[in-house]
Amino acid sequence: MTGSAVPPPPGRRRCVLSVPAGDARKVAKALGSAADELVLDLEDAVAVGDKDAARELLVATLHDLEPRRAPILTVRVNAPGSPWCHADLLALAVLPRPPATVVVPKVESAGDLAFVDRLLAGAEAGRAAVVPMTVQALIETAAGLERVQEIARSSPRLVSLVLGYADLAASLGMTAPAPDRLDLWLPAQQALLVAARAAGIQAIDGPHLGVGVDEHFARDVGRARDLGFDGKWAIHPAQLEPITAAFTPSGSEVAAAREVLDTLARAAVAGAGAAQLHGQMLDEAVAAAARRVLARSAGDPAEDGA
């Protein structure tokens, strides 16, 4: 990364909508969605023969797009080692207003992110006052899952890990679980969560493998929230509202989180080595949990210290 520039703090990603980057109609419609983040997909959603055309269309769209606050715009580039990854990254990095972040699919080692970091750093080096693009790593192979802790700590640009179910199932040789057996994904979910939390970055659950909004979808979303994920991907607009609602803290949860942080702040000003609240000892782990609650709240994450 060039100079002393550092990436901005990660934004709120309660609900992330993925759309094909090569479909101008879907992109235009998605820009007005209620998702926290919009992923414009140059990888799985684009056929091999259409990669260059989709990139050109996306670059033209982003070049003409007015600055916007929400949803966060990101691009899912093609995987490292593919014929298109470097071209995707360079085309995005030289835009007058590059996307806030890129999703890198099929990350299998720290070396994959080192390649991305060097390429972006070189593209950014000749530009004045550029805000470095951040990176999200999509973990969707056996090799990536095995090395997820190494990957989570490998780049200062990295702001989140995302679990990709369809490709991971194929990589593991796993029969796609029935809707009532999604508990089979628990080991992979916990591995990614532990790695993300230990590295201090976000953990985002991949999409429910279906476009319906039924009881199986609701259980899938609820389990991801209860496990501790910061948000979840969606593949259909009908899924946005229930995902966002599930990952938005209640008013009482927000109030409790603010009370924790206020209590710790007063203790620090007073020079106290520890603080208590309602009989509970407060420490950095409790503070980190409180900050995650505020980052997912309906208020401005920047104002909440996210």
Rank of each mutant, 00 (worst) to 15 (best):
L277V: 08
A298I: 10
R68Q: 14
R76K: 12
S297T: 10
S160Q: 11
N78P: 09
A295N: 01
D183E: 14
A290G: 08
A53Y: 06
D214E: 14
W185M: 05
D230M: 07
R197W: 14
V48S: 07
K232A: 02
D180L: 05
C15K: 00
T2V: 12
A121S: 15
A246K: 05
V254M: 08
A54S: 10
T263V: 12
Y165T: 06
I201A: 02
M174V: 06
D226T: 01
L277Y: 06
A45Y: 06
G111W: 11
L277Q: 15
A275T: 04
P67D: 03
E146F: 09
L209D: 14
A287E: 02
G164C: 04
E284K: 06
V194Y: 08
L240V: 14
D64M: 02
T263D: 11
A198S: 14
P71N: 10
V48Q: 06
P177A: 09
P105A: 12
D88P: 11
Q276L: 07
A265T: 14
A5G: 08
M133W: 08
L168A: 00
G22M: 01
G164M: 04
M174C: 06
D304C: 04
S155V: 01
A34F: 02
A125D: 04
A267E: 06
L57E: 06
T263C: 06
A123P: 08
G126P: 06
L282Q: 02
P132I: 09
D205L: 15
P7N: 08
L261C: 07
S155M: 06
